[in-house]
C-alpha cells in the first residue's frame, strides 16, 4: 500500500497488459519492458467472458487462455517479477476467478506473490463486503471503478472503499483506443476531484501523449493506458520488436504525464 501511495507524489502512468498474452513465457519480459516508464503496472487476469472489454483486449484474453494461462501462473509471474523490480503491480480481474477461489484465499495468494492492489471490474460496492474485508486483512490495495454517470453519494462510497486510488472510466463504453476523448471525460475528472479524497486515475480510450496530457491537465492524478499496448503485443507477438515498441510507447506516454509549471 505504501508503494502505491508514494507513486502519487507525482502524476502516475499506469500501463496495462493481459497476463499470458500471447503466452505465459512472454509476460515477464513485457513487464520488465514496461517497468522503466510506468509508475504502476496493471496486469490483467484473462477471463473467458471479458464483457467490459473492447475487441483488442478481448482478443488478448482469448490468446492468453488459448496458450494455457492459469490464475496460479499469474501469481507466479508477479513473484518472478519481484526478483527484478519493486514497481507496484495491480491485478485487474473479473469477479468470478476471485469468487471461485474465495475472496480471502485469492487476496492472500495475491499478497504472497507480491501484488500491491486489485481491480475487480464487475464488483460494485454493494457486493464487495467480504472482498473489502479480505483486502484490509492483508493490506491489499483496493481500486473501485466509477463512471461519468455515477451519482455523487455513490462516488463518495467508492472513494471510501478504494484504498489505492479511484478508477474513473472516461466514457460510456468498453476499453479500447479512441481518436478523441469525449468532453464528459474532462467534466468527470473535475467533478471527481471535488468529491474524492483518494487519487483519481482515468482509463478507457487513452492511447496518445496528447490524451494523457489533457487528462492530467484537467486535474487527474494518473492515467491508465492498455489497449494501445495490447495492440503492439497483438502485432508483434513474443519478440524483441514488441519489447522495443512497448518501451517506445510508454516513453512517449510518460511525457504527457509531466505537468507543465505555469
Amino acid at each position: 500500500m505504501r508503494a502505491i501511495k508514494k507513486v502519487f507524489d507525482n502524476k502516475a502512468l499506469i500501463t496495462f497488459i493481459t497476463a499470458g498474452d500471447p503466452n505465459p513465457e512472454a509476460t515477464l519480459k513485457f513487464l520488465l519492458a514496461l517497468e522503466e516508464n510506468s509508475d504502476i503496472i496493471e496486469l490483467g487476469i484473462p477471463f473467458s467472458d471479458p464483457m467490459a472489454d473492447g475487441r483488442t483486449i478481448q482478443k488478448a484474453n482469448y490468446r492468453a487462455l488459448g496458450s494455457g494461462m492459469k490464475v496460479a501462473s499469474v501469481f507466479e509471474i508477479v513473484k518472478n517479477f519481484r526478483d527484478f523490480s519493486e514497481k507496484p503491480i495491480i491485478l485487474m480481474t473479473y469477479y468470478n476467478p476471485v469468487y471461485v477461489r474465495g475472496e480471502e484465499n485469492f487476496v492472500k495468494m495475491a499478497k504472497d506473490s507480491g501484488v500491491n492492489g486489485l481491480i475487480v471490474v464487475d464488483l460494485p460496492v454493494e457486493e464487495a463486503d467480504n472482498y473489502v474485508k479480505a483486502c484490509r486483512n492483508y493490506e491489499m490495495g483496493t481500486v473501485f471503478l466509477s463512471a461519468p454517470n455515477t451519482p455523487e453519494d455513490r462516488l463518495r462510497t467508492i472513494d471510501e472503499l478504494s484504498s489505492a486510488f479511484v478508477y474513473l472510466v472516461s466514457l460510456y463504453g468498453t476499453t479500447g483506443a479512441r481518436d478523441d476523448l469525449p468532453q464528459m471525460a474532462f467534466d468527470f475528472v473535475r467533478r471527481a476531484k471535488n468529491i474524492c479524497r483518494k487519487p483519481v486515475c482515468v482509463g478507457f480510450g487513452i492511447s496518445r501523449k496528447e490524451h494523457v496530457k489533457r487528462i492530467i491537465d484537467s486535474g487527474a492524478d494518473g492515467v491508465v493506458v492498455g489497449s494501445v499496448l495490447v495492440k503492439i503485443i497483438e502485432e508483434y507477438g513474443n519478440s524483441e520488436k514488441t519489447l522495443d515498441k512497448l518501451k517506445e510507447k510508454t516513453k512517449e506516454l510518460r511525457q504527457g504525464c509531466i505537468k507543465e509549471v505555469r
Partner: peptide
C-alpha cells in the same frame, strides 16, 4: 435484490444507474 445469496448485480459501474 437477491434470492438469498443468488442474483445480485455484478456489473461494471456504468451500468448501475441504468439498472
Amino acid at each position: 435484490m437477491k434470492f438469498a445469496e443468488f442474483g445480485g448485480r455484478f456489473v461494471p459501474e456504468v451500468l448501475i444507474p441504468p439498472l
